[in-house]
């Protein structure tokens, strides 16, 4: 398969980037998108050029490290997959593929296709936890009965890998889907009730401080999320927020 890649190149955070054309051939449909970039980088290294920088880690769709805006969509045209799970068979011979970093003011570009997503870490640190006594009096989590529906919904929310596709897809660069998943995974469980009031307020405050946009319910985040995180989480977070602000 021959392809014409148009890739965002940017030397460092302060440099002005640009789209650079890279024709590539010998790409097989069974390759993953990142393997295709590996092939390109090997060619670039052999030619003495700087390889294209991109984030990756597990390459199994679990870690949330890989990103990339591919032909205008985070993680490319396939659904419920991360970029590392995207196969080249989804493209046709002769295609032009535009590859850009996830764009958001809260996700500044470090270089090329790598963006700084530590804003997500700071949102998590603001309230995405529960306080548990671990000094020898730890209570087994399973000692508290939880109905299956709540447990399943909490688990669904907890599958968010924090890749940032929701932000990248949203026309407002809003982080509501991420934040609401992290709020929901605790809000649905009894263990999360102790800090519920502070959690939602602190996480939303941090989300706003980071410079993410506001949700206008376009639904793009849900469609592009590789883990299928539902908009129901955003509605739940809105309820939690309203309840928390009225409780003070």
């Amino acid at each position: 398969m021959k392809l014409n890649l148009k890739i965002w190149r940017q030397k460092d955070a302060k440099s002005k980037g640009e789209i650079v054309d890279y024709p590539i051939k010998g790409i097989e449909g069974d390759m993953s998108f990142l393997e295709m970039l590996d092939v390109l980088n090997e060619e670039l290294i052999n030619k003495g050029e700087e390889p294209v920088q991109f984030d990756h880690d597990c390459r199994e769709g679990i870690c949330g490290a890989c990103s990339l805006q591919i032909n205008g969509e985070p993680h490319g045209p396939d659904r419920l997959v991360t970029t590392c799970q995207l196969h080249m068979r989804k493209f046709n011979d002769g295609d032009t593929i535009v590859i850009e970093p996830f764009r958001a003011t809260a996700f500044p570009v470090i270089n090329d296709l790598i963006v700084d997503r530590t804003s997500f870490d700071r949102i998590q640190q603001a309230g995405g936890y529960i306080s548990v006594n671990t000094s020898g009096n730890t209570v087994d989590a399973n000692a508290i009965p939880i109905n299956k529906h709540d447990a399943d919904e909490a688990m669904d929310a907890a599958t968010c890998i924090g890749c940032g596709a929701c932000v990248a897809a949203c026309k407002n660069a809003s982080a509501m889907l991420f934040t609401s998943a992290k709020v929901s995974q605790f809000a649905l469980l009894p263990q999360g009730q102790v800090e519920a009031v502070d959690r939602v307020q602190n996480m939303v405050r941090q989300m706003d401080l980071e410079g993410f946009g506001n949700c206008t319910n376009t639904g793009a985040c849900e469609v592009e999320c590789p883990k299928g995180i539902s908009l129901e989480n955003i509605a739940r977070m809105n309820r939690e927020y309203l309840s928390a602000t009225t409780k003070g």
Binding site: Q69, G72, P77, V98, R103, K171
Partner: peptide
């Protein structure tokens, strides 16, 4: 902004 943004694909 993105050079290419395919909003119709998801919203």
């Amino acid at each position: 902004k993105y050079k290419q943004y395919n909003g119709n694909a998801n919203s």
